[in-house]
Amino acid sequence: MIFKPSWRSLLLSTTTVFAVGLSTPGAKADIPDENYQPVLAHLLGTVMPPKIDEFHAASEELTEGFRDFCSDPDNGGLEETRAAYHAAMDIWQEIQPWRMGPLVANGRDQHIEYWPDKHGTAARQFRKLMFDKPAAYTDPEQLSGASAALQGFPALEEVLFADDHGNQMIAADENGVFLCQYGTAIATNLGTLSGELQAEWPDFATAMENAGPDSMDYPSAKFAATDLYRALHEGLLIISTQKLARPLGENAEDARASRGESPLAGRSLRNIEHNLIGLFAIYDGTWGDIGEEGQGLAALIDNSLLDRSFKLNWQTVADTVADLPPSVAEVLVQSDGYATLSDLKGQIEFLTMLVENDVGGNTQLGGGFNALDGD
């Protein structure tokens, strides 16, 4: 088995810590509102901006890579362009779960990545696009006003990884020329979207950091910090209920890797690995070499034993995902593949429970709200 057997024993250790906390007499005093402000300032003003800069730079490099490849297409250029796609997608998957402010304003997250596509909208629209080959879709500005299903990373995935599109672009036949022009327009539009995100984030971060009675949008710092807790909680829910549950289906016979995220690019589990990096930053306050340990939501938890146990459980899950192949398809073909992915889903659900009970309770930010269920 790929999975380490220790995660279930770690569940016991964290549950024990939580039970000890519950047995402590007396109600816990409210956290002063000013205690939330340093967390907001650190996560929104220090940790996230360099990552948005990184995403914009990766989008620009992807655009340049597409232009270079299409000016003189060959196999080497195709592989370099695919590598640029993966680099940009990696950082997007880390940013994606934050789901707040400029990330979701005007549906920006859906224009960057239209997923899940429950009704196959993108596939239908893409087939029609390739039949008609409208010139408007080779112009980034006109493309920005088109259906979200024909923009962003999934559309670019179709161009770079589906069928024989790569061969067509190298051959520079009629389809290949259109695909090159369309792909370059998608990448250029991604650069525009990431640039808008980069430009709008500072004002949003400042408004969150200055939350209080004088704010029109955030009447208290705790109210603002709830968005961070919600991003952490819902980010895990999306992994279990969409990124894993959709390809797993009802049972092993119903499992379909094609229902996962980024199936053509073969990175459905690689996406989850990067999701976990961005989500852990919300809790711990570090993102690679950016930030400071313990300055995220963890700064609000006055229980070092619980904090260590939570981090240990999270690291176990992160290591599990890192040890897996990058795609659901590669795991499902293994004899125990369905059980492996079901076990991973269980681990993510356990982390979600810890966030609801330990993090939500001790930061006083958990209130049972879940935008995914329509509440």
Rank of each mutant, 00 (worst) to 15 (best):
N210R: 14
A185P: 12
A155E: 10
P325G: 10
G337Q: 03
Q96V: 03
T15A: 15
Y114R: 07
I2G: 05
L269T: 04
F369Y: 14
R256P: 00
F310H: 06
Q198C: 03
I31F: 13
N75C: 01
T184A: 15
S215K: 00
L232Y: 12
I170K: 01
R308D: 14
Q93D: 11
A371I: 10
L344Q: 01
G212C: 02
K311E: 15
T184R: 04
Q142S: 13
L306D: 08
G367S: 10
D68W: 09
V47I: 08
L269G: 04
I290S: 11
M208H: 03
E113G: 01
A322T: 11
W98P: 00
D203W: 05
L156S: 06
E293Y: 12
E113A: 10
Q110A: 11
D323C: 05
P32D: 14
H165L: 05
R127P: 00
F55D: 02
Q110H: 12
A225R: 07
G368C: 06
K51N: 05
P32L: 07
A29E: 14
N175I: 00
G360N: 10
A187V: 09
C180N: 02
G296W: 01
Q364D: 03
R108L: 15
P325E: 11
E209A: 15
L44Q: 06
G77N: 08
G65A: 12
G288Y: 12
A148M: 08
S327M: 03
M89Y: 09
H111S: 13
L305P: 07
T63F: 11
T363K: 02
K51H: 12
T363Y: 02
V355P: 07
L78Q: 09
R8D: 06
G145Y: 11
G166A: 09
A322N: 13
F350H: 14
S147F: 14
G120E: 09
L300A: 07
M353G: 14
G183P: 04
G278V: 01
A329G: 03
F131M: 09
H42P: 02
M353T: 13
P263L: 10
I95R: 02
Q151N: 09
A41D: 07
T340D: 11
E64W: 00
H274E: 08
L40R: 00
W287S: 06
G288W: 14
L264I: 04
E34L: 11
G145I: 00
L341N: 02
Q125I: 01
T46Q: 12
P325Y: 13
G294A: 09
Y338K: 06
A281L: 07
L43V: 12
P73I: 07
P140Y: 07
E273R: 15
W98H: 03
E293C: 03
V359W: 13
